Simulated scan of single mutants.
Amino acid sequence: MHLVPSPATDIHETLIILPGGGIHAQGLLYDGPPDHSEALIERVRGPLRAVAARHNRPIRLSIGHPDGHVEYQQIAADGTVHPAQAPPTDTPAADPVWKQGIPEHTGLLAATRAAQRVGQWRAAQEATRRATQHLITQYGRDHPYVAMGTELQAYFAAMSQDLAAAASLYAEAAVAIHRLGGPHAQSHRNLASAVTAWLHSDRDTSPGGAGFAAAHALIRITPSNHATLKALLRRLCWLQDAGIGGPAGPGGVAAAGGASGAGGSPRPLGAVTATPGSPRTCEVEGSGRILLRRTSIVDARVRRVGVAAAPGPSRP
C-alpha cells in the first residue's frame, strides 16, 4: 500500500466512508463491507501516524459519512487518536493579496488576455497553465497567485466546454484557496462550480477523478453541508454500480482482504467496480437524481486575477 502524505504545509486529511461499504482516501478506493469501515480507516491512519511522529505535529482527519455528516479526529504526534472539534468558522480576514490579483506588471497574463479577446478559450487555458507554472517556480506552490492561476484555468476550461478538466481545476482551486486562508466566498464559489461542472461532464467516478475530489473538498471546506455531500456520495456510488462514468485518468483500488494484489496494494482500474464478494449497493432518491443547487460553472469570472478588463463574452 502506497499512501503519499500531504505537503508539509497541510495538516488536514479527509476520508470518505462510502454508501454500501468501503472507503475512499488519498485517491484510492478500499473495498469492504460496511461493518469493516473502522478497519479500513485504520489502514489510512497508520501512515498518517508516522507522518505526525516524523514532523512532531498533530494531523486533523475529517471523515465524511454516507448520511453527509462529518466526523473529526486528531492524530497526535505520539500516534494516539482523539475526537476533535469542528474547525472554527471565524477565521481571520483574508490577506489583501487576494484582492490584488496576479501582478499586472509581470506580463504573465498577456497571452491569456490576447486569447480571451478573440474567444480562443483553449489557448487561453494553455497560456494560463504556463503562467501558473511560472508562478510556482517563482513563489512556490503554496501561494495565492498559484491558486488564482488554477482558478483561471478552470474558468477557461469551462468556457471551452472541457467540463471534466473544469471540475478538477475548480476543486483544486477551492481547496488551495481554503487552505491558504483565502476569502470564504471565493473558495465556496469554486467548490460549487466544481460540483456543477462534474454533474454536466462525463461524471468521472474513478478513484482519482473529479467526482471524488469534489466530495473531499466538500468535507474540507463546507463540512456542515450535509445534504450536498450525501447526495454527491450517493450519485458517485450509483454511477459506479451502473457502470457509468469510468475513469478518465489513473486510479486505484485496494481490497480489504488483499484481493487486488499482494498485501492489498492498489491496482489500476479499467472500470471502477467492487471486489467480488463485497458488492456496493446504493439507493439514490429520485431514480438517481442528485439534488444540488444549480450554479453556473462560469460564475467565477475571476475578476481579481487580472483578466476582467479584457473584453470577453457575456456570462451565460
Rank of each mutant, 00 (worst) to 15 (best):
G21F: 05
Q153I: 04
G243C: 07
A174D: 04
P103W: 04
N56L: 07
H143K: 02
L61G: 05
Q120H: 15
E38K: 13
S168P: 04
G261A: 12
I59H: 06
A147V: 06
P66D: 08
A173T: 06
G181I: 05
R113G: 10
H105R: 14
T80N: 12
G288K: 12
Y139Q: 11
V51W: 07
A192S: 15
A171S: 03
I11H: 07
H184I: 14
S187I: 14
L40G: 01
I177L: 04
H200L: 08
R43L: 06
Q138R: 12
V253K: 15
D35V: 10
G22D: 00
A123I: 13
E71F: 10
A248V: 11
I221D: 11
H2C: 04
Q240C: 09
P276T: 11
T150R: 13
P33E: 00
H178T: 08
D35H: 06
P88L: 04
P19G: 01
G243Y: 06
D162H: 00
A86C: 03
R280K: 11
G68L: 00
A39P: 02
G209F: 06
A25R: 02
I244N: 10
G79P: 13
W98H: 04
T128E: 11
V195T: 15
P7F: 03
A114G: 10
T205P: 09
I41R: 08
L218V: 02
A76S: 08
T89S: 12
H216E: 07
P34Q: 11
C282D: 14
R267I: 13
A210W: 00
A242W: 10
R179P: 07
V305N: 09
G79S: 11
R234Q: 11
G32A: 07
V44E: 01
I63H: 05
I11G: 05
H12Y: 01
P268D: 07
I221W: 09
A147S: 02
P33S: 06
P266N: 08
T295L: 04
L109Q: 11
A231L: 03
H178D: 07
V51D: 07
F212C: 08
R220D: 01
A110I: 14
T80G: 05
Q161M: 04
I41W: 02
V146Q: 02
G107D: 02
Q133E: 14
V51A: 09
I136D: 02
A84C: 05
P247F: 09
A255D: 15
H143T: 02
T222F: 00
R220V: 04
A242D: 12
Q125P: 05
Q73T: 05
P58G: 01
R267C: 08
S168F: 04
R303L: 14
S265H: 15
W198T: 01
A50P: 00
P87A: 11
G64Q: 09
G270L: 14
A248I: 13
F212Y: 14
